[in-house]
């Protein structure tokens, strides 16, 4: 037990400060916002991550958001286990046809108002896999998308900035 406490104290707090990006910054980060979260929003964001045909590269970076450097929960952002608890669907992957119905049902199960973020090149525009007999391509081919984040995969920093940006009120 002493080892544990010693490590906690010697490591200290590694969490870094991040602010929501300026509008000019969004483009360089590869973030495109079609619709922000509206005024009624109280500042806490529940996200349901849906892998709809990703290679698992994006998932690794979503995981990283929860590490102590980014510590996403301090911004009121948390990942939930059911779409019924979610405000936002964070969708990765090129939407394989085998996942199409599952994604549609997940979307339907998410209560209104809801937002959809397409994360990564595959989800934003089809990426390396594109549309084929096996894939529907970009997420917007299947459900309405409110934000896209480019990158293969987007870094956790870009992802975090994107989440902060969609929560920012329209100026």
């Amino acid at each position: 037990m002493l080892n544990t406490f010693k490590k906690i104290f010697t490591v200290g707090i590694v969490t870094e400060n991040y602010k929501a990006p300026h509008d000019a910054e969004l483009e360089t980060l590869g973030i495109e916002i079609k619709r922000r979260i509206d005024q009624k929003f109280t500042g806490s964001l529940a996200i349901r991550a849906v892998d709809a045909g990703s290679c698992n590269g994006c998932e690794l970076e979503i995981h990283a958001l929860n590490n102590p450097f980014y510590d996403v929960e301090r911004f009121g952002i948390h990942f939930v286990a059911s779409p019924r608890h979610a405000d936002v669907l964070l969708v990765t992957g090129v939407v394989s046809r085998h996942m199409q119905t599952a994604l549609l049902r997940t979307y339907d199960a998410t209560p209104n108002p809801k937002w959809v973020i397409a994360m990564g090149d595959c989800a934003s525009c089809g990426g390396e896999f594109g549309t084929s007999y096996a894939n529907c391509g970009a997420v917007s081919n299947v459900i309405p998308v409110d934000m896209t984040i480019a990158g293969c995969p987007p870094t956790p920093l870009v992802l975090l900035k994107a989440l902060l940006a969609i929560m920012e009120k329209e100026k």
């Binding site: 892998d51 045909g53 990703s54 290679c55 698992n56 590269g57 994006c58 998932e59 690794l60 992957g93 090129v94 394989s96 085998h98 996942m99 599952a102 390396e128 896999f129 594109g130 084929s132 007999y133 096996a134 894939n135 293969c152 995969p153």
Partner: peptide, 29 residues
């Protein structure tokens, strides 16, 4: 089989450079 993305099929006709990129995404980890 839920994430079947037709990797083998879309590899056909690619250049060697294109295949290296696709292979890097067979499993993103």
């Amino acid at each position: 089989g839920y994430v079947h993305k037709g990797t083998e099929k879309i590899a056909e006709g690619r250049t060697p450079e294109g295949l290296a990129k696709l292979a890097g995404r067979v499993s993103g980890d």
